[in-house]
Nucleic acid binder design. Structure first.
Lengths: 337, 337
DNA sequence: GTGAAAGCGCTAACAT
DNA sequence: ATGTTAGCGCTTTCAC
């Protein structure tokens, strides 16, 4: 049987209140009894029952983390940032993968709530406005990460994906490219939509022609990157540069280019987004947008926990700065006569 | 205020016992009242308090996952396997990073226990026998993953790292290499020790000479791979092939070779271990040992939960099969006169 | 078929 | 400085 506060009380010859007092470092215990009780606690190897404590305190010191997929290389670092900050502030994290599936997301949120987490960090598909509205209305502590669902008043920690997409597309254009393609991410996500929209903005502003044939809809996976890049290369009119909506798809694209007997960047420039580990490891190094993933996580956890502990604190959106990371997958392009 | 079982009872005009009965699908409720109660539950959006339930049931339907670092590319996939299986069986997972730090590990275990997890999946450094012994003695459900601490009677889901190291070293030898080096992982881990020992066994069995200069102690990080490979290359006698204890270090080694103006595999063959995503994405593709990471996770979760639910079940060790994954970072070697 | 009461392990008034 | 009591939200005897 596990040893409880009662056992300690009996063994030490005091009331459970007194034990509780020394457990929580409350005043009003004589040094003597405190010491005595502490000894018994150590001797019996007592470990307070957090569940019981949680029930009376209405606080579990646990936060929920709901993300699409921990095995997508973007998320482990943000998860690490979250866990580090949470631990620092005395919280644990319970996590759940949803694959951007609306129903999974709903269930995950419900589950977390029934587990009485003190707050949640969410990266949801775009379909789940209602769920978020409910949480907001219930005044439940939530911070969104990576993706901010539009029209939802919950704070978010993100980068500006439209800007980053605009920036990297502009970079391609400044290199002399005029035939640009984009392979979009899962358009059920806000990030994919924003990146697409940043791409189009750049195309428009620089007065380049826009072709539906050169904007393909992927799903952020390596496989879809490979497949869609293959499709792109099979077209009669080939772009000279392509913006892949994330690095994972860019990796897939490398393979497709290679398999077509072409070369990056000589025949086609490729850029990605996120700067996951692989981006700097592959050759040619992938030009991409670096997202401060760890910091994204740290910041989200920090805001969430502040929100949990200060009822009058409503977190603001935090928009972190990404950075254009130029490597070797891009080169200047001269239109030849 | 959150709605409780009491509110439902009052609103439906029944006792809380009855509400509890319909909540848990117990018999002895008339179809009529059941339906009535269910209606109220839906109307009020009631969500049972898992903490209260956990207190009386002494069961939280939560398992703990303690690993060195979720942002090490080896772990996300195993974490995903664990979460998938856990979810399937009705459990959630709460996770914690320890960086192979003994004290962090101790604290994490204690934390999990105070949170009353039903069981834990652990990947610990080798220093923590005592902690594991305590858990074993307390008959607390635990399964080890990736690394089995020696002399501890808790089931483990692993591959045989000595065998895999032996296998990949033999492959190098069969290619004609006779000057082999090994850059070990963090020797505070069982895996690193086993891989080193498999390497030495191959060296011994094939009667190759062994030099301490060619066995360097890394820590599984990319940076240490780069640094130690540089050290290796600076030596007067250079090996022609090196077994890096994991893929991450192998990536670092690629950089070191490149920066020395040498080429993989023409000047030096390199192999890794684990087959993380990057291994197949980089050029030349990294010859390595593929670990069934997702399955490792699935299996561990399955055993753990079975162990939780069947008091007489003691899980056996499961040793999964790795696979030699030959790519282009290795080539035959002819000793030239 | 239904409800009253006890109790899970703890904290927090409220005495004393 | 210490103890008594109530109660957190739920499940489970036990009685009716």
């Amino acid at each position: 049987m596990k040893v409880t506060i009662k056992d300690i009380a009996k063994e030490a010859g005091v009331s459970i209140t007194t034990v509780s007092r020394v457990l929580n470092n409350k005043p009003d215990v004589s040094d003597n009894t405190k010491e005595e009780v502490q000894k018994v606690i150590n001797r019996l190897g007592y470990n307070p029952n957090g569940v019981a404590r949680g029930l009376v305190l209405k606080k579990t010191y646990t936060i929920g983390l709901i993300i699409p997929d921990i095995s997508n290389p973007f998320f482990p670092e943000v998860a690490r940032g979250i866990e580090d900050k949470a631990k620092e502030l005395g919280y644990s994290v319970i996590f759940c993968n949803t694959d951007n599936n609306k129903e999974e997301e709903r269930e995950a949120i419900e589950l977390m709530r029934s587990k009485q987490v003190d707050g949640m960090i969410l990266s949801l598909s775009i379909g789940n406005k209602e769920e978020l509205h409910k949480l907001a209305k219930a005044n439940f502590p939530v911070v969104q990460i990576d993706r901010k669902i539009p029209e939802v008043e919950l704070p978010a920690v993100t980068i500006n994906n439209k800007t980053s997409a605009y920036q990297i597309t502009s970079y391609l254009i400044e290199l002399g490219h005029t035939k640009l393609a984009h392979i979009a991410g899962d358009l059920a996500t806000k990030t994919a939509r924003d990146r697409l929209s940043g791409f189009r903005q750049a195309i428009d502003e620089f007065g380049l022609e826009y072709s539906d044939n050169w904007v393909l809809k992927g799903d952020y996976s390596k496989e879809s990157g490979y497949k869609l890049m293959t499709t792109l290369l099979e077209q009669s009119q080939r772009p000279t540069a392509v913006f892949m909506a994330n690095d994972l798809m860019a990796i897939g694209a490398y393979g497709a280019v290679f398999d077509s007997g072409l070369k990056v960047p000589e025949d086609i420039s490729i850029v990605g987004h996120d700067d996951i580990d692989i981006a700097s490891a592959i050759r040619p190094g992938l030009t991409t947008i670096m997202q401060p993933k760890y910091k994204l996580g740290m910041t989200a956890a920090e805001i969430l926990i502040k929100r949990i502990n200060e009822s009058n604190f409503i977190g603001d959106d935090v928009i972190l700065k990404p950075k254009l990371q130029i490597r070797s997958s891009t080169k200047e392009w001269q239109a030849n006569a």
